[in-house]
Design a binder for these strands. Structure first.
Lengths: 344, 344
DNA sequence: TTGTAAGCGTTATCAC
DNA sequence: GTGATAACGCTTACAA
């Protein structure tokens, strides 16, 4: 009942083979006769063998572990990223050790050390706490997603293009005044591209525009409060047709709610576009037109870049990449009910 | 530069101690003189030592790994669970290996086998694919959360109480007709308690009630469609004050959206209560009154139960629990704008 | 307080 | 095709 652990040694004894042969059964079965394969299979079954991959890792150095550091999974965006990453198990067989970053550099360091102690083969970073320079210094394969990444491989959405798509749609909707609403975003963050895309498109098309940035505070409620103020300000602007491009769907939804509560519906002089295609965009009273990040594609790219590096590390003479590879993924415009139907 | 791995042997040689002493430095530092501790610390630093916890696991059997199987993390409910579980790292130091269940028993088996091969000390199961009987058969510490759990330890929300809370509020709101909307839920699922709580409360209070169940299909859109039909049906019922208790906030929000699009606001003859306190409940045009699951408390309980079992396994003569422990966590009524203000 | 030596359960190398 | 044997890097009696 309380069977002690069965090991290769036991199987070997039981079958009159050597441990080596048992090992081969797992790693290179073709090198055994079918007959012997069956003998071993049977012994495995009869003795109730249970693999120990940790021992194998110690012996061959391939942990098949990949570390992940996410800032949180409260936001659907990160949850979906994580979802997609974990789902690659079926394809690549990497096991994922997941840590939630604390926005605390010290703590994140300890996470990384812990991951290194468990011999991860690679690291996927979504949190913003540790600089890419520091990440690079660990000398292991790294891929970052949608964050600063000067010194490591990365995958980002083409935020600039997203800004252009959103703004172009609003212009096609004949909005005579364009507004972009965002939190204070440093220029080195990929998402800053949304602002540039917006601005450039407005300029090119010669439409008057305004960029409203603010610190929305740390909570949903504080965000609502700030956006409420912005709503009131915009309401004063008169009734020309306003096209508003928001940094994300949450902001858009909050703004939309203010509109609904005032007008009972979405009046034609408001056209809104969000970003992220998060659930709230489809769940809003009037489903929100938004720029969707192609998360699955991003993750596929991230895994490709990571595996590229990890495979290199397994060679006798690993030749690290001469320069980090950066990939951009085009976002997708998803037209719903907060803009006029329109073929672009 | 491409420094070879530094091991205890190297440190030992460098410091003229034995490997044992180096080991003790990590596991029982007090048994060394301060002086020698510093010597070793310095050597560690100078040689650039990097722990290898896998080797340690092989030697002492304590992996500090815990496996998690979630059905998905697309739903905020699961994402938040995962969030809370992962966040316990700071407290308990268990590392988490996360798998996304496929609703496919075979595949989930392979996940579990993989986890066993990596010598997890315990397993947290949120997916519904594998029966608790099967889970128990693996002979390792298991805790399930909010699912069938006859043969293993578990943590659940007190769904019955939740149903009672929601229904009582609607009755206090003077609703003269009570309706519960749910998908087809088998009785053995914990969430079925919500239905019983609703029904019992209606009966006790002698208020006419109706339970509407349906298969809402696999997508958000199909859910919208079905709820739209239900909305139309309820609209025909006349204008008595209706109190509707939904199985979750998503249903509630969809229903609310139908109301808004028809009436432009929430008319007083509709009172709505959701379940889960998911983001959509607060983000809706009219923030939704809901029954919140205390996820953090649930997770704390789950970890307690798991650690209890895992610690037992570390004893010389582990005495497994004579019977699985089941814990219930009370839900919390969160009053917002889809019900009348009311002190209960 | 410190050291010796035998594991832990695999894989890798080199023979046969 | 198969087997001995030495790693892999750490822990843990048992000694001293």
């Amino acid at each position: 009942m309380s069977r002690k652990k069965v090991t290769f040694a036991d199987i070997a004894e039981y079958t009159n083979f050597s441990k080596t042969t048992i090992s081969r059964y797992f790693n290179n079965p073709d090198s055994l006769t079918i007959e012997n394969q069956e003998k071993i299979a049977q012994a495995l079954d009869e003795l109730g063998y249970q693999e120990n991959k940790l021992a194998r890792v110690l012996a061959n150095g391939k942990s098949e572990f990949v570390g992940i550091i996410v800032p949180n999974i409260y936001l659907h965006y990160y949850a979906e990223m994580l979802n997609q990453i974990l789902s690659t198990y079926g394809e690549h067989n990497y096991k994922f050790l997941v840590f939630i970053g604390d926005n605390d550099k010290k703590i994140e360091q300890t996470y990384i050390n812990e991951l290194l102690a468990y011999k991860i083969e690679g690291l996927i970073v979504l949190s913003h706490t540790t600089t890419s320079e520091e990440l690079a210094s660990y000398q292991i394969p790294v891929v970052t997603i949608e964050r600063e990444s000067a010194h490591v491989c990365s995958v980002c959405t083409d935020n600039y293009l997203g800004g252009v798509q959103a703004t172009s749609l609003l212009i096609k909707n004949n909005c005579s005044r364009l507004i972009h609403i965002n939190s204070n975003t440093p220029e080195y963050v990929p998402a800053y591209g949304r602002i540039r895309g917006f601005e450039d498109t407005c300029k090119t098309s010669n439409v008057p525009y305004e960029i409203i940035t603010a610190d929305f505070g740390p909570t949903y409620d504080s965000t609502v409060e700030h956006i409420g103020r912005i709503f009131n300000r915009i309401e004063q602007m008169g009734d020309e047709k306003k096209g508003i491009f928001f940094a994300n769907d949450t902001y858009t939804n909050i703004f939309l709610n203010f509109i609904i509560r005032k007008y009972g519906s979405l009046p034609p002089h408001y056209r809104l576009v969000g970003f992220d295609n998060s659930p709230i965009a489809s769940e809003a009273v009037f489903p929100i037109t938004t720029i969707g990040q192609q998360i699955e594609t991003m993750v596929r790219n991230a895994m490709e870049l990571l595996i590229l590096q990890m495979n290199e590390m397994k060679k006798r003479v690993p030749k690290p990449l001469s320069a980090p590879i950066h990939r951009q993924v085009a976002p997708v415009l998803i037209q719903r009910d907060t803009t006029d139907p329109c073929t672009m």
